[in-house]
Structures are given as structure tokens and as C-alpha cells.
Design a binder for these strands. Structure first.
Lengths: 210, 210
DNA sequence: ACAAAGAATGAATAGTGATTCACTACTTAT
DNA sequence: ATAAGTAGTGAATCACTATTCATTCTTTGT
């Protein structure tokens, strides 16, 4: 025999793959999944169309991976906020704010993750994504209940409601029609929005007005 | 000249249109928008494919109309619940319950309205649909605030959160994977779910635990 | 009965972009 | 250098249905 995959080759392939992933990410962040064409991605990544298919089963699979990746970033940030100090309610509030503010900062990607119509495999990822948030929130609620700063309740249900309330509140501001005339990047503008979302959420959670 | 559109013809056309609408509705209620083929709809309605296009600009337009129609039914029911007796909080609670219970009773259609990936024109209708709910809720919240049974708050924001919280809570139970193994139609089963959704929502609204 | 106009038909077409695959170009080991 | 295998290529193909339109069928008024 002659050719055997060597480290150098493995690396080169990995680089190409990464380039494909990065370019896809960029395309999606610019215009969402729907408008990200395989051809364009290949062009940006400097490979032939066919090469995409040596790294991914299908466009849908590629997209699913991108979704997972983008998701992970967001979820990690929220997890981070939840890991910081303070009691359960405070940590949750910080996490909710993180979620909303990050979405408003990268609106197209956030819209793709939250509301863009996507293919089934990607939609599946989306369910997982929302569940990931819910799980984080649920855990924090449980802790808050133990600490006594959050009244006893169905933590799973409440966490789902939190995700829904935020997502829904963001759909309007994030949808492409809104975005194109965007004042985005002007972060202060969004504070009132974020604040009122959070007020509702925290009240739903704690039953306490502020 | 010879042929001139007569009442009889107008009626016949209207009937055909209605048949098309009904069959489309049925198809969507069975498997969602994505799987509803123009050919199949035409077959069910007893017309040729081309005839569909004498009544609707395009498949997307047809779907948009179906969406509007289905929406109207749901929104009307909620409006009805809001119009009944009791104070603002009570009326709202009844409306939220109506929303959730009806969705669980017609899960595929509810899923299509709430979460199925759809084409742009239909997506637009969806935004309107969600806004319609939010508007109803908003009005009721305002009334509740005046009556004093709901504390002062950003009614618009709260209404959006309500829609989101319910929709999100339903997405899981409604998604096709869940539905196929369905226990649907067994209405009692869903009561705990509906109850805990409503508990969170009412608490978010009133700041009162029960 | 006839002509004029519209309605209905459905087989053929078209548009779209993902995916394939026969081929070329590399890489490696001997 | 050669053989054997792998990676990369991108024009051609495929798949999928929505949509069209030349033709046929109905209706209507004279």
C-alpha cells in the first residue's frame, strides 16, 4: 500500500472544514439560513462546491452544526451569568438580561436562532437549544427555591415560560423588517425593552413587584 | 357581446373557492403547510390544478388566506372569553385557558400556526396573528389595571410575554414528534399543563401567588 | 343555433439550487 | 519513479413541485 492519512493531511482537512464552518457562520449572521447558498459558502471558503460534501453529509447537516455552534456560544454566556455571585433571583435576572442583550446585539443571528423558518434537522436543534436555556433556568430556579428567594413552584414550567416570554418579546424587534431600518448597535436604546421584559419575568417568578 | 357573468356563475365560483379553502384547511390540519401539495388540494376539492390559480395568486397566497382564517377562529374564541363576565384578571385567565386548551385539542393546526416553518408571506400573517392575541390581552390588562385587580404595568410588554410564555409551553407538546405518539383528545391529561402555564402567567401579571 | 366570452383543464414546463460523480491532482510508501 | 490510495473539483444532473397556457368545455345573449 502507499498513501496513508498523515498528521499533516489531517490538519489540512481540519483547516478546510473550519474555513467552511466559519464562512457559513458568517453567511448566516448576514442573512440567515435561507439565503445562505452552498455555492456562495464554498466560494468564500475557497473550495469547490463538492468539497463541502466531503465534510458534511448535506447542507442541512452543515446548518445544523452551525446552529449548534452558535447556540453553544449563547448558552455558555448565559450559563456564565448564572454561575456568578448573588442569590438565585439575582443570578437569574443577570442571565435573562444577558440573553436579551446579546440577541439585540447580533440581531440577524439571534433571529435565525429564535424565529427563522428552518429545515427539520435544524428545527430539531432549535428545540434542543430552547431546552438548553430552559434547563439552565430551571436549575437556577430550583436553587432559588432552596435559598428561599424564590417561592416554591413548578421550576420546569416556569423556565419554559421564561424562555418563551423573552423569545416572543424579541421576535418583533429582531425580525428582518425591523432590522433593516435598524438602530441596532445603539445599545442604550434597548435597555427599556430589556428592562420591561425582565420585570415581567422576575415577577412571574417571584410574585414580587418592584 | 354574449357571455356576461351572472349570479349563478358567481355563486358556482364562490362554491369552488370555498371547496378549495376547506380542503386546504383540512390538508393543513392533517399535516401542516409544508406537506400540503397543490395537486392534492386540487384533487380533494375536485378541481384541476390550474383552477386553484384562478382563485389564488399562488400557493403562498392560498396558504396565507388559510392561516388568516384559522387564526381568526382562534382569536375570536379568545376574544369571546375576554368578553365574558368577571373582573379583568378573571377574564384574562379564562382567555389564556381557552388559548391553551384549544391548541391542545387541534394540535397539528396549532403547531402550524405557532411553530411550523412557513414561507415569508405566511410568516407575516403569523406575526399579525401573534399581535392580534397580544392586542386582546393588552386591552384586558389595561382594563384590569383600571379596575384595580391588576397592578400598574407596561400592558403591551406584558401581553407579549403572555403570548410567548403560552406559545413556548405548547411548542414541546405540540411538535409533530410528540403528536404522533399522541394521547391527544384525552383532554384531562393536559389540565395540569394548562394550569401551571396559567399560574405563571397570572403571577407575572398580578404579582400574586395562589 | 351561433358567436362571444369566460372558466376549467392538466400535461408540459420552468426555476431553483442542492447534490453527484467521473475525473484530475495530490500525497504517501516502497 | 511508481503504485495505490485519497482529496478536490465543478459542470452536469437531479429532484421537486409550483406554475403556466394552449386547448377544451360552459355559459350567456341574440
Amino acid at each position: 500500500m502507499a498513501y496513508r492519512e498523515t498528521e499533516k493531511m489531517r490538519q489540512r482537512k481540519a483547516e478546510a472544514r473550519k474555513r467552511i464552518v466559519d464562512c457559513t457562520y458568517q453567511c448566516v449572521a448576514e442573512g440567515g439560513f435561507r439565503s445562505a447558498r452552498v455555492t456562495r459558502i464554498a466560494g468564500l471558503a475557497g473550495v469547490a462546491t463538492g468539497t463541502i460534501y466531503r465534510h458534511f453529509e448535506s447542507r442541512e447537516d452543515l446548518f445544523a452544526e452551525i446552529f449548534r455552534l452558535a447556540t453553544q456560544r449563547e448558552v455558555d454566556k448565559v450559563a456564565e451569568a448564572l454561575a456568578s455571585g448573588g442569590n438565585g433571583a439575582e443570578r437569574l435576572e443577570r442571565a435573562l438580561r444577558q440573553f436579551a442583550e446579546r440577541a439585540l446585539k447580533g440581531p440577524t443571528m439571534a433571529w435565525s436562532l429564535i424565529a427563522e423558518p428552518v429545515d427539520p434537522k435544524v428545527e430539531e436543534e432549535r428545540l434542543a437549544y430552547r431546552k438548553a436555556y430552559a434547563n439552565l433556568f430551571e436549575k437556577a430556579i430550583r436553587e432559588g427555591i432552596e435559598e428561599g428567594c424564590i417561592p416554591d413552584q413548578d421550576a420546569r414550567q416556569s423556565s419554559t415560560c421564561l424562555v418563551g416570554a423573552i423569545a416572543e418579546s424579541l421576535v418583533g424587534p429582531l425580525s428582518p423588517t425591523q432590522i433593516s431600518q435598524a438602530d441596532s448597535a445603539t445599545e442604550e436604546n434597548n435597555d427599556p425593552l430589556v428592562n420591561s421584559i425582565i420585570r415581567f419575568c422576575m415577577q412571574g417568578l417571584t410574585g414580587t413587584r418592584r
